[in-house]
Every structure is written in C-alpha cells, then in structure tokens.
Computed example of a mutant assay.
Amino acid sequence: MRVLLTLVLLVQLNFGFGQNKFTDAVEKFQKELNAEYADARTSPLMADDLATFKTLDFYPINEKFKVTARFVRTKKEKPFEMKTSTDRKPLYVKYGEAYFTIDGSDFKLNIYRNIELSKKAEYKDYLFLPFSDLTSGNESYIGGKYIDMKVPEGNTIIIDFNTSYNPYCAYNHKYSCPKVPLENDLNIEIKAGVKKFHD
C-alpha cells in the first residue's frame, strides 16, 4: 500500500512539475512580449496607444492548445510570393506540414520559411506559422495570428498556440504583414495566445 501511495505521489509531483514548466514558459513569452510593446524603441504601437499601454490581452493559458504534431517535410517546393497587407511580396517556401488533433478533431497546418531571412545565420532554423481560426474577427485579430518556430530534428513538432501573437498590422497600419494563406484557416476556436488589441 505504501509503495502504491508513493507511486501516486510521484506521478502527481511529476505532472505538477510539467504543468509549472509549461506555464512558466508561456508566462515568460507573455512578459517578454509586453516588454517589447512597452518599449518605444521596439514597440509597434502608435504613439497614443503606447502612452497608455499596460499589457496585451491574453487568453488564459491552456495546455490543450499545446500540441505535438506529426511533421512531414515537403520537398521540391517552389518559392512563392506571399501576399501581404501592402504591395510587398516577400519570398517564402512551404517547408512542411503539421498534422495534429484537438478535442478529437484532426487538423493540418502548413509551415513556411522566409527565403531572405533564412540566409542570415541567426534565422537559419526559423520557421513561420501563420493561422486563422473561428475566433478571428471576434475575440482575436481578424487577420489571424503568427507563431515563431524552429526546424524540428525529427518527425514531430510542438505547436504552442499559447505563444501565438498578432501581426504588427493589428496595431499600426504602417506595417506590411504576411496574410494567412487560406489553407491555414482552422475550423475550430483557438482560444489561446494574444487577443485582439481594440476595435
């Protein structure tokens, strides 16, 4: 009986540690994002908004929206001009596909790589995941959100929607932001990450 209780306690402790580690990582992301937006040197906010800025509005942290996806590397993809909110058309290439399940439903997202950015040493492993969902235009920004990712080592990739953020265009019209490709529109409410700034 004592052995069983010890095992149960260890499982609970490990689960709690895992939970804390997950929560800490998301809270660190939120803190760093808020710091970036509060600093006039790095903030995308317009002057009036920056003057009164305190914090971005985040959904409650939810581990359901951190998924381990099956990653399929797509080969022989041709670079294409990604549409943006302006006339700018940066070159991207579809790098891979992520297959995952939330609440028993299966989804797929395409993951992209910015051609020019990938030529810089500090961004050689950087991947770009733009998406929209059923909250877009309601609780979250109408133009969808982004997630920064790194090239995975194996055939799985972690997608943490809790670290999804708005394009700069959600705050200031002077920016040129990639538009979410239609194939990355999810038929589910992703209640995670940053909410819309204001109407």
Rank of each mutant, 00 (worst) to 15 (best):
166 N>L: 08
13 L>M: 12
49 D>T: 11
163 T>D: 00
74 T>S: 03
74 T>R: 09
160 D>E: 04
135 T>C: 09
185 D>I: 14
154 G>A: 11
109 L>T: 00
157 I>F: 02
120 K>P: 07
177 C>K: 09
181 P>S: 11
171 Y>G: 04
161 F>A: 09
177 C>G: 10
110 N>G: 13
111 I>E: 06
77 E>T: 13
64 K>E: 11
141 Y>P: 12
34 N>I: 04
92 Y>M: 15
115 I>T: 02
111 I>T: 08
191 K>R: 14
58 F>Y: 15
172 N>H: 05
52 T>H: 15
172 N>F: 02
163 T>L: 03
101 T>C: 10
161 F>S: 04
44 P>D: 14
29 F>D: 04
25 A>F: 03
67 V>I: 08
148 D>I: 02
46 M>R: 15
4 L>W: 10
161 F>N: 08
97 E>C: 10
163 T>K: 01
188 I>P: 12
43 S>E: 02
151 V>A: 08
1 M>L: 07
19 Q>Y: 13
1 M>E: 11
9 L>D: 13
19 Q>R: 12
89 K>N: 08
117 L>W: 04
117 L>K: 08
178 P>H: 00
120 K>N: 13
166 N>M: 08
69 A>W: 00
146 Y>C: 11
169 C>M: 04
147 I>V: 14
193 G>Q: 03
102 I>V: 14
16 G>Q: 10
168 Y>D: 07
121 A>D: 08
157 I>Y: 01
146 Y>N: 11
62 N>Q: 03
11 V>M: 14
125 D>F: 00
138 N>K: 12
160 D>V: 01
62 N>C: 06
10 L>F: 09
47 A>N: 07
89 K>W: 03
101 T>R: 15
196 K>H: 05
50 L>G: 04
130 P>V: 09
29 F>R: 00
14 N>A: 08
150 K>Q: 14
178 P>G: 04
185 D>K: 15
189 E>K: 14
19 Q>C: 12
164 S>F: 01
34 N>Y: 05
33 L>V: 05
4 L>P: 02
153 E>V: 15
169 C>T: 10
76 K>L: 10
1 M>T: 07
42 T>M: 01
176 S>P: 06
44 P>I: 14
140 S>F: 06
38 A>I: 02
160 D>M: 06
40 A>S: 15
80 F>G: 02
189 E>M: 12
105 S>V: 06
138 N>V: 08
111 I>R: 09
132 S>F: 05
101 T>E: 15
188 I>Q: 05
91 L>C: 03
70 R>M: 12
184 N>G: 10
152 P>R: 12
1 M>N: 07
46 M>S: 15
31 K>M: 10
127 L>E: 04
125 D>G: 07
93 V>S: 08
114 N>A: 01
147 I>F: 11
82 M>A: 02
188 I>M: 07
178 P>F: 05
199 D>C: 13
157 I>A: 01
131 F>A: 10
163 T>Y: 01
103 D>N: 13
88 R>M: 07
123 Y>F: 13
151 V>E: 15
25 A>W: 03
131 F>G: 01
